[in-house]
């Protein structure tokens, strides 16, 4: 469960509020620069908000002693130092949160990198980097997943794999929040942000409303249709 309540940052976010619930994929949609990444970084304790609260299971991210077991996050890049092999990267992450080493090979298997564990992260293709980032997010088997633009850099097969994977996570009862400027994935709930303000939120049906599609609704909500 993710609860964002009136989160503000001068010039970037204005009283952003929404929830993401267990068992559902929540799409956090907006154009580039709308405030998606800022919101996600505040939620994960990487940046500070000037006001408001961003909680995960009723607590701020930084108050969890072993956060990787609660929240899995995928941000820009793989997060691994280029000179470090993928497996070594995941092993220090596992050690930092008291997770078993066996878990490292399990997540490499899940994201399809079982054969590339010994390869240095700097030699990974863009798609492989994303998979390594996802492996890190899954390490602690968290009930909440937060993914910032997870489809960036994936080839069509990768996009399809990611879509199905996230759907499965939600079906298992996890909370899945993913931000994207693309609309081509199945979501249960939608939050639309524009210019740092939430302009619509609700179930897919509620936000689509009278429009033919989510895309139509999005374009009219964000004023991007004038393009």
């Amino acid at each position: 469960m993710i609860s964002i309540d009136r989160v503000s940052r001068p010039g970037i976010l204005h009283e952003v509020s929404f929830d993401a619930r267990p068992g559902r994929v929540t799409g956090f949609l907006g154009r580039n620069g709308a405030g998606k990444t800022s919101t996600v970084r505040i939620l994960l304790g990487l940046d500070r908000a000037a006001g408001g609260t961003a909680l995960i299971n009723h607590q701020p991210y930084a108050s969890w002693p072993r956060p990787l077991t609660v929240v899995g996050a995928l941000l820009d890049g793989s997060g691994a130092h280029r000179a470090r092999p993928a497996r070594a990267h995941l092993r220090w992450l596992a050690a930092s949160n008291g997770l078993s080493r066996a878990r490292v090979d399990e997540v490499l298997e899940v994201v399809g990198l079982a054969g590339a564990g010994g390869k240095r992260a700097g030699r990974f293709s863009l798609g492989m980097s994303r998979r390594l980032g996802l492996a890190a997010a899954l390490l602690g088997d968290p009930a909440v997943l937060v993914l910032d633009e997870p489809f960036n850099g994936l080839d069509p097969a990768g996009v399809r794999w990611m879509r199905e994977f996230l759907r499965r996570c939600a079906d298992e009862g996890r909370t899945v929040l993913l931000s994207s400027h693309l609309l081509d994935f199945p979501v249960d709930d939608v939050v639309v942000i524009d210019g740092g303000r939430v302009v619509a939120r609700g179930t897919l049906g509620e936000v689509t409303g009278e429009h033919d599609s989510l895309e139509q609704a999005f374009l009219s909500l964000t004023g991007a249709s004038s393009w």
Binding site: L46, Y61, P67, D76, S78
Partner: peptide
């Protein structure tokens, strides 16, 4: 090493993000 860019595709990304996510 925490602030070295992790790759050309994401020039602003560095290991510190992963570090702070693991130890906030």
């Amino acid at each position: 090493s925490e602030y070295t860019s992790t790759g050309d595709d994401a020039p602003g990304a560095h290991q510190m993000t992963a570090t702070l996510l693991a130890m906030p």
